[in-house]
Write a protein that binds this DNA or RNA. Structure first.
Lengths: 205, 205
DNA sequence: CACTATTGTGAGCAATAGCTCAGCTATTCT
DNA sequence: AGAATAGCTGAGCTATTGCTCACAATAGTG
């Protein structure tokens, strides 16, 4: 049993609604501040100021700055509502639609707050606990896709495990880029090409 | 004319060999320190200490910390010796070999110091000047590939511009991941699959 | 209301960072 | 050799940060 990282645990549990509200305010403010200033320049005092609570209150619910970002990241991961793998169409000839669903999922999970996500991914001080959580989620997701690929009649690749890794990462990163920076190419066009690439790969012509 | 960012310009130009040597020592030390500690924790004092020069000397050649990392990044970009596009085989049936050359380039340019590269890419404070430089290089590269794709008889995609963007980024990021973190899958296998994916996409079966 | 538990406050501490500057040493020039 | 220029030093200044703690305010309870 992985004893949760003490460095990220809150020091006090909210027992009144008012407290839960304060906690919420802190997280909301932190999201805004990190988005605007980045992680390093997004100071705890700025967060407290924006949340309109005192810096002391902030430290009652989060033992340190890292814990705040960690909480935001864990929330994002948990909130990620993927298309259930078993709801995807597995009949022949629908591989493209399946891939399209994956890309759409990726776009959805990035469209909420691309800036914050970028900071969380690129600047987060990744504790072992957090890395484990992310890794666990990643493994589950990969396993789902591997399963899906191995059951789909149209998929013809050497190793489904490698293929799952490759396409998930490729979709993730391309979507990330697409959403984070305004591109010269229209979003739709790029997404279509991405779907094409993955589909053709999986078909293994 | 883009008047170079004053914040990144050295405050004194080396006029003696000894000075040029010191500058070199600083950059080498910085590369090591950033690799070991990351950007934020890689302090200027630590860099000076490692270079075995005084902190004052450091600030004679670099106006601030950002400028040091910027210099390292620019060096890396300039040093990148890509396979010349016009040396690639364009005869039919060799598309796979062409793509393989691109992937090999990417792997080569990442194998020197993956850790440092990760830091430069993910933690560098990107000034407008630096962004411009990177963008310029990117455009040149993309143009090269677009040209290559449009001339190759086997390539069948909707828009070569979009395709060039897509495959360059995909190759770059996957290689980056491959080199930065030890994977469960062997490098060769992953590289092969990546080549397959891109090739099949370009063939547009 | 009186008493306790919970929540909130914010001045300021300790640590650390980037960076300066007055003065030194080494090299080049005449 | 002496003067002028270029290069080097490092104690310490200034600014900022994450975070503490003694105390005040509020909510729950009988």
């Amino acid at each position: 049993m992985p004893s949760a990282d003490r460095r990220l645990q809150p020091r006090r549990k909210p027992r009144q609604v008012r407290a839960e509200l304060t906690r919420e305010r802190i997280l909301t403010a932190a999201a805004h501040v990190f988005t605007e200033y980045g992680y390093a320049a997004g100071t705890t005092n700025r967060i407290a100021e924006r949340a309109r609570i005192s810096i002391g209150s902030l430290y009652q619910y989060f033992p340190n700055k890292d814990a705040i970002l960690a909480q935001l990241l864990i929330r994002h991961i948990d909130r990620g509502t993927w298309t259930e793998a078993d709801r995807l169409d597995l009949s022949p000839g629908t591989l493209r639609a399946t891939v399209q669903a994956l890309v759409r999922d990726a776009i959805d999970s990035h469209s909420e707050d691309p800036q914050l996500l970028r900071i969380m991914i690129e600047e987060a001080p990744l504790s072992q606990d957090l890395l484990d959580a992310i890794d666990r989620h990643g493994r589950i997701r990969t396993a789902q896709i591997r399963d899906l690929l191995s059951r789909h009649p149209d998929v013809r690749v050497g190793d489904v495990g490698t293929a799952a890794d490759l396409i998930l990462f490729t979709i993730e990163m391309n979507t990330h880029k697409l959403m984070a920076a305004p591109s010269t190419v229209p979003v739709e066009t790029f997404a279509t090409e991405l779907v094409d690439m993955v589909t053709r790969y999986l078909r293994g012509d």
